[in-house]
Design a protein around this nucleic acid. Sequence first.
DNA 1: GTGGGGAGTGAATCAAGCG
DNA 2: CCGCTTGATTCACTCCCCA
Lengths: 379, 379
Amino acid sequence: MSVVRTGVSLAAPHTTENTEASASWLNTILKGDCVAALEKLPSRSVDLVFADPPYNLQLGGDLHRPDQSKVDACDDHWDQFESFEAYDGFTRAWLLAVRRVMKPDGSLYVIGSYHNIFRVGAILQDLGFWIMNDIVWLKSNPMPNFRGKRFTNAHETMIWAVKSKDAKPTFNYDALKTFNEDLQMRSDWHLPICTGTERLKDKAGLKVHPTQKPESLLYRVLTASSRPGDVVLDPFFGTGTTGAVARKLGRHYVGVEREQDYIDAATARIAAIEPGDAASLEMQQSKRSQKRIPFGSLLESGLLQPGTELTCPKGRHLAIVRADGSLKSGDHTGSIHKVGALVQGQEACNGWTFWHIQDGRKKAPIDELRKEIRSRLQA
Amino acid sequence: MSVVRTGVSLAAPHTTENTEASASWLNTILKGDCVAALEKLPSRSVDLVFADPPYNLQLGGDLHRPDQSKVDACDDHWDQFESFEAYDGFTRAWLLAVRRVMKPDGSLYVIGSYHNIFRVGAILQDLGFWIMNDIVWLKSNPMPNFRGKRFTNAHETMIWAVKSKDAKPTFNYDALKTFNEDLQMRSDWHLPICTGTERLKDKAGLKVHPTQKPESLLYRVLTASSRPGDVVLDPFFGTGTTGAVARKLGRHYVGVEREQDYIDAATARIAAIEPGDAASLEMQQSKRSQKRIPFGSLLESGLLQPGTELTCPKGRHLAIVRADGSLKSGDHTGSIHKVGALVQGQEACNGWTFWHIQDGRKKAPIDELRKEIRSRLQA
DNA sequence: GTGGGGAGTGAATCAAGCG
DNA sequence: CCGCTTGATTCACTCCCCA
C-alpha cells in the first residue's frame, strides 16, 4: 500500500480531539484494498463517509441500443461477485472497517441501485447503524430502457446512517433550507448525471470511470452533513469526486482506491482545484448555535419595562412583565414559556414567538426584541 | 376464517389455465392471518400481487407540530415487532405464501419505507425473486420534518419483482408510454398522498386506516402489470384500495385482512364502485392511445391566435401566446408547461390545465381547445 | 357563487443542556 | 444516568366559514 499526497493545506478540523490536522493520511489517497487500507487510520477520526461501493450488477450479455450500437456497460472485474453471500460478506467487512474509523457522531452515506442497496441497508441495520433517511437521486437524464421491458431506471438510492440511535450527527438544516429557496430539503434530489466537461475522459475520449458521480451530489451531501475542516472519507474513491468537492468546500479528505489509473486521474483532478476560502464557505448560521439570550436581558437593556402588557397573537391572553423577568397572567406565574403553556393548557410553548408586544398599531413577537439584543451584541 | 363476497361479476381472466372465473375466492376478502388465509388459494392462480406490509416503524415518544398539535402517528399494534429478526421471519413467511400462489410469470409489488424496505428487498432476493425495478413514489404533499433534524421524508419505495430471472411478466409498455405523454414511464412516480373525499373517515371524522394508499398509485401498478380479467391479490388489504381499483379496471381481486373494521369499510367501498365494463375499458384504451397534440396545433388550427393573452386560474399571472407556439410571461419564455412552472416557481406544471383563455365571461383551460382538436381529428 | 383567511393534517424511527 | 428546564420546529393541500 502506498500513499499519494496532493499537498493541500486547509483549515484545521473543527474538532481535533482525535485528528491531528497534520496527520499523514489527511488529503491523501491510500492505495489498496478498502479494509486493509482503513486499518492505517485511527479509530474515531472521520466525520463523514461517502461510499459508492460496487453495485453487484448482474448483467447478462451485451446490451445494444435500437440502432445496434453497444451500450458501454459497467462490466469491470471489481463489480463481479459470485453470489449474494459473497457480496454480503464483502459489504459487512468494509462497513465494519468504516464503522471503526467513524467518530461517534459521524455520518455515513452509501449510494446504490436496486441490485445492491437492499442488502447494504439490511446489513447496516444488522450492524447497529441507525438510518436517518433514505434519499433518492432522481436523474434528469437517465439512460432509457431500450428493450421496453421495464420502467426507465431513473434514480439511485442513498442511505444516510449514523453509528447508533443516540448519535447526534451534524445536519446543517438552516443552510439546506436557504439553499432550497426557504423550503425544507426533501429526500428526493433532482440532479443531472455527470456529463460534459465534468466527466473525466482519457486521451482516446473514453470515460475514465464507468460510474463517476456528479459533483452536485457530493456538494449536497457535504453541505448537509459536514462542516469546514471536517474529515471526509471515501473508501471507494474512484476518480475522486468526493475529494474534489471536499477541497472546494474546505473539508479534508481521505480516499481509498485499488486501481492506479483511478488514483492518477483523481490526483490530477484534485490538484487542479482551487480550495475554498473561509469567507465563501461560511454557512447559513444555525439559529440553534446562536448565543442564548435570557428573557431578563430585555429588561436590563431597557427594551422592555416591568409592568409591560404582553398578549398572545390573537389578543385573547394577557400577561404582565415583572421586574424579575417572570410573567403573571391571571393565577399563572413563571417563565415566558411556562406561562404561555399554562394559559393555553398545553404542555409546552415557545414564549419568544407566543407573546407579543404592541408596537404602534401592530403586534410584534418579543422574539423581535431578542433579535435586537443579538444585533447589539455583534456590533 | 370467513369469506366476504362483494358479488362482482366481471370478464373472465385472460388466462384460465389455473383459475376458474367462478372460483369461490374471487372478488372476496379472506379474513384472517395472511399466511393461513393464502393456503386456501390454489398454487399459481394469481397474476399480480400488491403488498403493503407493516413498516415496522420504531417510533419514540409523541411528536408535536410547532403549534403544539399532536401528530396522529401510526402506532397500531399490527405495526409492532420485537426485533429485526421477528420482522424478517414475518416477511419470509408471507413472501413464501405469496410466491406459491403467484403464476410463474406473475408480478409482485411491495411498498415500504426505509424502516423495512431494505429487509424486504434482501429477503426477496434471498428467496429467489428477481427484481425488475425499484420505484419511488414521490409525495407532492408529505408531512414536513418538524424538528429540522433530517430531510423531509418525501417518498416511499416500491419493489417490482417476479418469481425468477426467467419470468416474462406482463408489462404494458406502450400503454404506459402513451399515458406518460409519449415518454417512457420512469421509476419515479409523482403522486399526491391520499386525502380529501378519497380518504375513508368514520362517523367521528377520524381516518379509518392510518396508511390508506392513493388509488392513483394502484391505478398505475395495475395498468403496468396486469390485463383486464387478471387476478390481483393484496395480502394486506386494509381498506381495499387494491380491490377498488381492480374493480374499476375490470380485474378480479382477492384480499386478505385480519381486522373486521377494515373488512367492513373495504366491502362497502368496493360495492359502491361501478365496475369497469368492457366498453369503458375499451374507451380507456383508446384514450390512453390518444394522439399527442402539440400546443402549436391550436395556432395552426386557428383556435388560438398569436398575441392571445392567457391567465392562470386566479388571473394573477398573464402570458402572451407567440407565433412559434411558445409563451412569454414577463422575462420567462418557453413551453406552456415550462412558463407555467416558472411563474409559479415550481418545478413542473401541466400547462394544459394551468393556462386559461377568456371565453365570454368565463375562463376556460386551454385543455378545452385540445379536446376540440381531438374531436376534429376523430371526425 | 366566489374568493380569502384560518384551521386541520399526513407511514415520523424528529431535542439539548444542565444539575 | 435521570429528571427537569428551556427552547426550537412545518409544507402542501383540503375543507370550512364568512364576507
